[in-house]
Amino acid sequence: MFQGAKSGGTLIRLASFDMQKLVLPGIIVLIAVVSGMIEPRYWTAQNLVNLGRQISPLLILAAGQSLTVISGGLDLSVAAVLALSGICGVVVMNDFGMTAGIITMLLTGIAFGTFNGAIIARFKVSPFIATLGTLSIARGLALMIAGGLPIYKMPEAFIDIFGSGAVFGLPAGVIFALGTVIVFSVILRYTILGRYVYAIGSNTDAAFNSGVNVRAYTVLVYALSGLTAGVAAVVLTSYVAAAQPLAAQGLELQALAAVVVGGVALTGGQGSMLNVFYGVVILGMLSNSLTMIGVSSFMQTLAIGVVIVAAVILDQLRRSAN
């Protein structure tokens, strides 16, 4: 990785570099082994498939969240946009068919994301406040359109294909989630957009002075974050076979937590999709394991909070050690 691998310090650097790479997978293995020892049912295919289904929406949102956080912002509206997309999509689906409904879900997400990005880029509003506002707007719209109640009516095919469908045992939701992560990972690593996302998060002025159209790229980043809300809406709505205006409450914070556990700095400019993936898996496994072991949901909430705080402290220690 380092081309100037000449000095004696390089070995140490490479060693610690690899260590860091192994920390998150190590934690995953640890959770798996410990849970398996306490509760043998943990290692059944049924539970692993369940785990995959449970974390799919979170994984999709976390992919978009990574983009916004690396670019130096964040998107609090994703979960609310997910609910709105689900409602809009199902309403359209019942009149115009499944494909139109799915397209509506994705477009609703993109539209809201673009709206977020436009507010942030055009008026230089802090992303925190801007998306806090649109969170409420999206949630409000969802409640209004649905009349405050969940919509259960939707085409059977939608539930069969996206909700309970599977390829080689992998549920459709999991395939969507992995696909999203891979696409976003490629975007971050290999495309111009990826380089600009890191650059804007690292030093916006530098990016602007270098000729990056910071405004346009900021809008694009939030549009993609919105798109993940649309994709997650398809997965979640078909899985629970209902479009709920209050769906996924708090999921935006879980996505943010996963991004942070995955070592992405909230100050922007650094982080990798692979680590965010680990972050999501850790949070998902933790809640899954605690449930199986029989820990109360109150206690679970507390435990996950402790993990997040510990992850941030560890990350900070690692950063200052460098």
């Binding site: 890191y198 650059a199 998060g201 690292s202 030093n203 002025d205 530098a206 270098s210 400019g269 650094q270």
Partner: peptide
Amino acid sequence: QELSLAPHL
């Protein structure tokens, strides 16, 4: 004058 480099890149 103020360097226009992105530090993490």
